[in-house]
Simulated scan of single mutants.
Amino acid sequence: MLPTTNAALLALGSAVILITPGPTNTLLAAAGLSQGIGRAARLTGAELAGYLVSISLWGHVLAHLASPLAWLPMLVRLASSLYIAYLAVRMWHAAVSFASSPQGSIGMRTLFVATLLNPKAILFAGTIFPAAAFASWPAYLEAMSIFSALLVPIGLAWIAFGAELGRGRLKWVSPAQVQRCASVVLGTFSLSLAWTVIR
């Protein structure tokens, strides 16, 4: 069983990273835009499967290397912090419209592979998930349950967002404004992550 503090930090960190735009969320929004909520909703299953595989692999690799390389977890956190800062700056300067995202045939395999290769998985495994999650099955199952309970509604929200854009109901929403808000959230998270490394 995870301590309450670890579970709360896992939930908060996972929610922040899952909400921010990225390759998987862009594909989910584009699928909602082109297919509608009903047809695209199943894609959250592919997203969940991709993250479960990737986080599990990275988590176990990092857990086994943490003992002989005691500095590795701190290095991963610092690298994650810098990567998030880079994403925040890049997102601030880019005004990407979801309407211009690849919308052809976004299927289960496309979304699974995109999520499997998503750099966010390393961030989840090395920073957001507590080390205990990869040390025992009960802690692992609890952590993955918390993560899954957050991923599904957030993924559906991205699909719904894309569907609403497709219907023209969100004319007041500018993709540039969405990305700038996400950039501020990412920047704040990057600073808090860096603080945990240097304090």
Rank of each mutant, 00 (worst) to 15 (best):
L2C: 11
T4Y: 08
N6I: 00
A7I: 04
A8K: 02
L9F: 14
L9E: 14
L10F: 09
L12H: 02
G13P: 03
G13E: 11
G13Q: 12
S14A: 15
S14G: 11
A15M: 13
I17E: 08
I19G: 03
I19L: 15
T20M: 14
P21A: 12
T24P: 03
T24A: 13
T24C: 08
N25Q: 15
A30Q: 06
A30W: 06
A31R: 09
G32Y: 04
S34R: 13
S34K: 11
G36H: 01
G38E: 11
R39K: 14
R39N: 10
R39V: 12
R42T: 13
E47H: 13
A49F: 10
A49M: 13
A49P: 02
G50L: 08
V53C: 11
S54Q: 12
S56M: 08
L57R: 00
L57A: 15
G59P: 08
G59V: 07
G59C: 06
H60E: 09
A63I: 01
A63T: 10
H64I: 10
L65N: 12
A66D: 12
A66N: 09
S67T: 14
S67D: 14
L69F: 15
L69A: 13
A70K: 12
A70M: 10
A70F: 04
L75E: 02
R77Y: 03
L78D: 07
A79L: 15
A79V: 10
S80Y: 03
A85C: 06
Y86F: 14
L87V: 00
R90V: 02
R90K: 15
M91K: 08
A94C: 08
V96I: 15
S97Y: 02
S101P: 03
G104V: 05
G107F: 02
M108L: 11
R109W: 12
L111W: 06
F112D: 00
F112Y: 04
V113E: 05
V113P: 11
N118T: 09
N118I: 06
P119F: 07
K120D: 04
A121D: 00
A121H: 01
I122G: 11
A125N: 05
T127P: 04
T127C: 12
I128S: 08
P130V: 09
A132G: 06
A133H: 05
F134Y: 04
A135C: 06
S136P: 06
S136M: 03
S136W: 01
P138M: 02
P138Q: 07
E142A: 14
A143K: 07
S145A: 15
F147S: 01
L151K: 00
L151S: 04
V152I: 15
V152F: 09
V152Q: 07
P153D: 11
W158T: 02
F161Q: 07
F161S: 04
G162E: 00
E164N: 12
L165G: 03
G166L: 02
R167G: 12
R167E: 10
R169H: 14
R169V: 01
L170Q: 08
W172V: 12
W172F: 13
W172E: 05
P175F: 03
A176N: 07
Q177M: 15
Q177A: 15
V178C: 08
Q179S: 14
R180H: 08
R180G: 01
S183Q: 06
V184D: 05
V184W: 09
V184M: 13
V185M: 15
V185A: 15
L186N: 09
L191S: 00
S192V: 08
A194W: 13
A194P: 07
W195S: 01
T196H: 14
R199Q: 12
